[in-house]
Design a protein around this nucleic acid. Structure first.
Lengths: 244, 244
DNA sequence: TTAGGTCAGATTGTTGACACTTTACAATTT
DNA sequence: AAATTGTAAAGTGTCAACAATCTGACCTAA
């Protein structure tokens, strides 16, 4: 038995027996869903999960209820718990709300942003530029997430952070979320620069606009990629493979 | 299709299938919290609740986990679940996010608002005016909630609806949420008129501004009321009484 | 007096068992 | 053969009991 993520989770459960099993299990199921280990639309078999994680069904059910409120799974009475899958329309909904929250964060932060925060953002811009130039797609994607997460957290609004993070996680249920094309990195980088520039000028309105528009542009880039794939007749399986 | 006994039975079956015991209990506990029946900071005794609702602790615990994700209660391992209470800072956080979402809803709706929706909003404005003139505080408050709920739902964005409703409910945990003064109704009414006017002109930016500012003004009115009470030395008990 | 220990009651955490529902499939009928 | 009915397996819903943990009162000793 090597150190797979799965065995790591099992040992964690064994070690944290004293603590709340439910929370550990909740995170584990969440991980299985987001990693695709549990496919979209698939039913969570309580008995199988309980056996796999060496616990009874109680904690499994409690974790399921929590995940249902988070929007990761869907409960159907007497039928079971099903992994949610996001369609095109769902993804657009998430984009719109995320745009609003991202804009809000920019607007809230602009008047109170510190020099240290601006310096940190400048550093991220530099890293993103490097990733873009070396066409490091995965790196750019991670930096992009980190950049926005940083601004959201900088507002100090814990509810904004929680809701935003929930949307980011939920978006991963959109199986084609890795569709950003390589040439989009340059455009995305420019938009991030605009956001930082607006923050530096402490211009709340400009910061809102830049942030909001950045996410909306991302939505358009995604839609364009989706449409071009549909025109190509690219099957979903190819997408799934690329994501794996 | 009329209301035959047969269709009544069918709908009863549908009702039973849609409502599991856990979900019913979840709503019941939520009601008890929002109504103040369960005081802020109070621990939910699983045994007592189970006995009161004539069920076992299993469904109680499942409902508790769901309510924890919704932000109504706080889980402390091996200690229990506690009803959350919102302080001044929490209330301000909620106001800020609500302002952002309200603005977003206005911006999204402005380009696509229908005549029927505008007519409905006009009707609500008339009702609010009547409530304001007869100093019907409770009626005005309800209309205000309904007004914003209507705009949020009109966007057709289910995630926006869900998040917004969660914030509205959470805000009720702020025990002094009923602090709006009578003279504030006139100002609030004007701001609602501004929102509808911007919608009618299909001006997304103006609609965002009017909506955002309306909520932010509400925050300021609340803070002013809080401060004046603090200056008066009005005890919390008086507030609780007024809310009852 | 007070700090610390200990013990009993109360409460939460977890489990296995049982009842009910759904589902899949075989048997029967038309 | 197609449709329908019956049946058994699988899975979810709920419960009561047991284990682990916390709380608070009481007691002891410095």
């Amino acid at each position: 038995m090597t150190d797979t993520p799965e065995s790591a989770a099992l040992s964690t459960i064994a070690l944290l027996k004293a603590n709340s099993l439910t929370q550990v299990i909740q995170r584990e199921i969440e991980r299985m869903i987001l990693s695709g280990e549990l496919a979209a639309g698939e039913r969570l078999n309580e008995n199988a999960l309980a056996a796999k994680l060496s616990v009874s069904r109680g904690p499994i059910r409690e974790a399921s209820r929590a995940l249902a409120e988070l929007g990761f799974v869907h409960l159907i009475p007497n039928r079971g718990v099903f992994v949610k899958s996001l369609g095109r329309d769902d993804a657009m909904e998430v984009y719109d709300v995320r745009a609003g929250l991202t804009g809000l964060a920019g607007m809230l932060l602009a008047p109170v942003v510190t020099k240290a925060q601006l310096a940190a953002l400048d550093g991220m811009l530099a890293e993103m530029r490097a990733a873009s130039e070396s066409t490091d797609f995965a790196g750019f994607y991670a930096l992009n997430l980190h950049f926005h997460q940083f601004i959201i957290e900088a507002t100090g609004n814990s509810r904004l952070v929680r809701i935003y993070q929930g949307l980011v996680k939920e978006f991963q249920l959109f199986r084609r979320h890795g569709l950003v094309q390589q040439d989009a990195m340059a455009a995305s980088l420019d938009e991030h620069r605009d956001i930082v520039a607006a923050l530096r000028q402490r211009d709340a309105q400009a910061c809102y606009d830049a942030s909001f528009q950045h996410v909306q542009n991302g939505k358009q880039r995604m839609l364009a990629a989706l449409d071009s794939m549909a025109a190509d007749g690219t099957p979903d399986s190819a997408v799934a493979t690329r994501l794996g």
